[in-house]
Computed example of a mutant assay.
Amino acid sequence: MWKPDPSTIITAAMKAAEAQATTVELFRVAIQSHVDMVASSRRYDSGNSLASYVASGNAQWAAEAQAFVGWRDAVWIHAYAELDKVLAGERQQPTVEAFLAELPFIEWPAEASA
């Protein structure tokens, strides 16, 4: 008689965990893309590039980097908290677009005068 190999059995719990991981990754990629697009709007290559200017000798770039890093932290704090609520069943899963719309807005520093 045939006996299934327990190591190859996919359980409902495993399927649910995989679906959650896929959902989290979908949102993570979209949020990171949003963060990078915000940086690109100020002519930086990416969010990581902009954040690297935090100690720049150029006062404008350093101020933009500091504002960006604080905003980026707020974005990810909000995102993780709300995604945890989705995974715990405490809120409905929004669309990616709706979720991005609820992220904090960045407030850029005033332009330095020349």
Rank of each mutant, 00 (worst) to 15 (best):
M1D: 12
W2T: 14
K3E: 15
P4M: 13
P4K: 15
D5Q: 06
P6Y: 09
P6K: 12
I9W: 10
I9Y: 11
I10F: 06
T11P: 02
A12R: 07
A12L: 06
M14R: 09
M14H: 09
K15N: 13
K15G: 08
A16L: 14
A16H: 08
E18I: 05
E18Q: 12
A19D: 15
A19Y: 08
A21Y: 05
A21S: 13
T22E: 15
T22H: 11
T23P: 08
V24K: 03
V24C: 09
L26I: 15
L26M: 15
F27A: 03
F27V: 10
F27G: 07
R28E: 05
R28H: 02
I31K: 01
I31H: 04
I31R: 01
I31M: 08
I31N: 00
I31P: 01
Q32E: 09
Q32T: 05
H34Y: 08
H34A: 09
V35I: 14
D36Y: 03
A39D: 00
A39N: 03
S41N: 03
R42T: 00
R43P: 05
Y44P: 03
G47P: 03
G47K: 01
S49T: 04
S49I: 02
L50C: 03
L50D: 00
A51G: 06
A51T: 00
A51K: 07
S52F: 03
S52G: 10
V54A: 06
V54C: 07
A55F: 14
A55S: 15
S56R: 04
G57R: 05
N58D: 09
W61V: 08
A62F: 06
A62I: 11
A65Y: 00
Q66R: 13
A67F: 07
A67S: 14
A67V: 01
F68G: 02
F68A: 01
G70N: 15
W71I: 05
A74W: 11
W76F: 14
W76A: 09
W76S: 11
I77E: 12
H78Q: 06
Y80L: 06
E82A: 08
E82I: 08
E82F: 11
D84I: 13
D84T: 14
D84F: 12
D84Q: 14
D84L: 12
L87Y: 08
A88F: 12
A88G: 02
G89L: 02
G89D: 01
E90Y: 02
R91K: 13
R91C: 10
Q93N: 12
T95R: 05
V96Y: 05
V96E: 02
A98G: 00
F99Q: 02
F99I: 01
F99A: 06
A101M: 11
A101F: 02
A101D: 12
E102T: 02
L103D: 01
L103F: 03
P104V: 06
P104S: 00
F105P: 04
F105H: 13
I106R: 01
I106G: 00
I106M: 10
E107W: 10
E107T: 15
W108T: 09
P109L: 02
A110F: 04
A110Q: 15
A110T: 15
E111A: 13
E111I: 13
A112R: 14
S113E: 13
S113V: 15
